[in-house]
Structure formats: C-alpha cells, structure tokens
Design a protein around this nucleic acid. Structure first.
Lengths: 217, 217
DNA sequence: CGGCAAATTTGACGCAAATCAAATCTTTCG
DNA sequence: CGAAAGATTTGATTTGCGTCAAATTTGCCG
C-alpha cells in the first residue's frame, strides 16, 4: 500500500535569464515573462499562498497531494497551452512540479485586469477533467485505466499516433492509482497484443486506435 | 467488476404545486420557484442541454456517470445549500438524481443577471471537492475511504456526532469505488471497534471522532 | 398486524493488483 | 568509454477486495 517518493530536488531557475515573450495579448497584461523550471523543480507547494494562475508555454507539470505516509496521488498532468493552479481560497492545497524542462507564464489574476471572464471556462475545464478522472479511478481496472490515459494523452497532443509521455512510470502509476509494476505489465501486455508500440521509454505509438478506445470503455 | 443498477423510476413533480419562496435575493433574480423531486427522480440526464445551475433547498442529490456495461461512478453527493450542475459546455455530461425528497432552485444563469461573480467560487468549490476525492479513490483502502466519507458527511452537516446518510449502501459504494458488501463490512468493522454506532441504517453516530480522522489519513 | 420485496449483512472463495525480489535496460558523468 | 545509479521490466507470492451465495433486517402496503 505504501508508495513512497522521495522529493526530487531541483531549484527553479528564476526570471531575468529568460527572454520575455509577448507580455500583452488582446491588449491586456498577461503575465510577467515566462519562468523556466527544470525537470523536477517545484512550481508551488501545498500551503503556499496563491500568486495567480499558471499557463504552460512548453513542457509539462504534475499536480499532486501526499498522504502522511508518503502515498502520492497525482490529480492532473498539464501540458503546453493548459492553465492550472485554481484554488477555492488563496492557498495552494496541492504541489505542482515541472516534469521536464518547462516554461510557465504566471498570470497574476486580479479583479481589475479583466481576466475574470476567461477564468470560469478554464476552471470548468479543470472540473470536467477531474470528474472524468474520478470515473477512471473509481470503476476501471488496470488495463482500462492505461487505455484511458493513453487515449487522453494522444488526444491532447493532437490525435497523432506518436504520443509523447514526459512523465515516468511512477508518475503514471500515481496518476492512475496503480503501482509502477502494474503500469509496466499493462504496457507490456498492450505491446504484445499489438495495440501499441514503444519506440522508446517515453514515447508510445498507438497501432490500434480503435482497440485502445474500446478498452478505455 | 460489473456493478449494474437499474434506474429507479420516479417522476419529478413539477412547479405550480409548490409555494414559491423569495424569487429575488440581494435584488437579483435567483430562480423560478423551487422544484420538488421525489426520491430517485431525475434532475437532469447525460446529454441533456444545460438549463442553468441547481441549488438544493432541502434533500440530497447524486451526480454520476455510467460505463457502457452499467458500472456507475457517483462523482459527488450534494446536500442542502450546495450548488451543482456545472459543465464546460452547455450539455450535461452526468446524470443527477434526487436521493430523497428534494427541493431545488434552478438558477438560469445568463451573462446579464450579474450572477457571474459568484459562479467562479462555486465552481472552484466543486473542483476542490473533486480533487480531494481523487486522492481517496486513487490511493486509499476501503476503511480509509469510508472514514474519509463519514468525516466529510459529518463536517458538511455541521460537525455533529449524529450524521444523516440519505444515500443507500449501493450509492456509497459507487461513490467510493467499492462494492456494497465491502461498504457493509467496513461499517460493521467500525461499529465493532466502537468508532461508530448505527442507531439506524441511514444514521451514523460518530463515537470516536479522532480515530475516524486518523483512519481517514 | 402480517407478508412480501428490497436492502443490508455475513460467510466462503477467487482473482486482480500489490508486494517482494531480482534481472535488465537507460542515463549520467567522471 | 565505463562504471554506478536510477528506471523499467519481469517473475513469484501474497492479499484486500470482489464475486457468489445465503441469511437477516427493514420498509412498504394492503
């Protein structure tokens, strides 16, 4: 049951070094220049005060919580173009870490900057994602979880057959409520059945799209 | 694995019969008169067009999805005072049913009625709830899930020792990703350990608050 | 009140995924 | 390049929860 993960130590590289990209979009201040985070570095911590929202320029982020005994649940992965960091109050209740080299716009939301109209749709997208994921964790078995995960990742990357997995097997396990061994075994099983190919550890090629969809149920 | 639930048949009793309560609060139009739903009746269905948001006056609601083979995942229970029915687009992706006799205000949100300011906090509350629940489903065992569920229900009912459970064991199971047998066994185990008492099927008395909290991890 | 249907509990057993263990493969970096 | 550390895969075994089955309780309605 225990599933301990030593925190990966890596410090974020802070602004100033980074070329700033468009600070204004549609005539509104969007963010400070994008901040660069190296693989494994912390974007924010549980208990930290919210500074705003986070929009990923490139890279990927995992958002998670820990139980007191070290079990970890990743509640979401976020990819380029996605916005995360919503909280009901102004304190973070989760940890967020860059999975790989990642550039993030920090959006300092305030009542005055006219962002509020776009916040709700983004928050709702997060909500729908979380609710979909509840179904997977509550009622699907290992192979269905992996199939759903791969379908989702593929879809979010434009539906190409080649899917990039920036995260480790441990991350996938902690997202799907499985152990790394089970994740690995299911990958092997899918490969052996010809549903996917694994050109490399962090890359999956979906050979039988329809079969994967059906498995995801 | 399969977990079939025949839909409970009961029709909502529609307005007109119901005395209308304050249609305006703080000078804004809030809702049509509250609508009464009998136990098991449908509030909305998956695929149905969104008519607005729903605020519970009294009673309780379950929101759920079904897999093609009938497995059901309840993503949330909603109690009196709570608002539900958020979607990213204007189509419902879940089913909502009254668990018991329930009165609901249907809030026809529109850009013009000044509700929008209050929508985001409510949506975020739903989001946080869903994320908390992910941790339970992903990483907690049966006893921890039940303990977390009972703690949550107690807290939402004002922290009293006597907790009302409007929902069946089947509902609890489908919310926590467990079978009814496992739910029942865990209740028995908690009772036998003196953590809870069961004055009746739908009522739990929390005898050892701290133990329950510790179990919820 | 009495009888039936549904819900819940309890028991026996099986299985999917966890755990424990060890062999590969990959990456890092001196 | 080559060694060491870490990640992943694979195998053997255990176990918590699901499944199947039956007993018991509760609620409903004439």
């Amino acid at each position: 049951m225990a599933n301990l993960h030593a925190p990966q130590i890596a410090l974020p590289v802070h602004p100033g070094l980074i070329a700033r990209s468009g600070e204004f979009a549609q005539g509104r201040p969007v963010a400070q220049p994008p901040v660069f985070f190296s693989a494994g570095s912390e974007v924010y911590a549980q208990g930290e005060r919210c500074k705003g929202l986070y929009r990923i320029e490139f890279g990927a982020v995992r958002v998670y919580r820990l139980l007191s005994d070290g079990r970890r649940q990743i509640s979401a992965f976020h990819l380029a173009g996605e916005t995360f960091g919503f909280e009901a109050d102004n304190v973070h209740h989760f940890f967020a870490e860059a999975i790989c080299a990642t550039g993030i716009h920090i959006i300092h939301a305030s009542p005055t900057n006219g962002m509020s109209g776009e916040l709700l749709p983004l928050a709702l997208k997060s909500l729908v994602r979380a609710q979909e994921h509840l179904l997977v964790l509550g009622r699907q078995n290992a192979i269905e979880r992996i199939a759903a995960f791969l379908s989702d990742m593929a879809e979010r990357q434009g539906g190409l057959k080649q899917v990039d997995l920036p995260m480790s097997r441990a991350d996938i396990g902690d997202y799907l409520g499985l152990t790394i061994e089970t994740v690995s075994r299911v990958f092997s099983r899918l490969k052996q059945k010809g549903v996917i190919r694994l050109p490399s550890l962090r890359c999956v090629e979906i050979a039988k799209w329809q079969v994967l969809q059906d498995l995801a149920a």
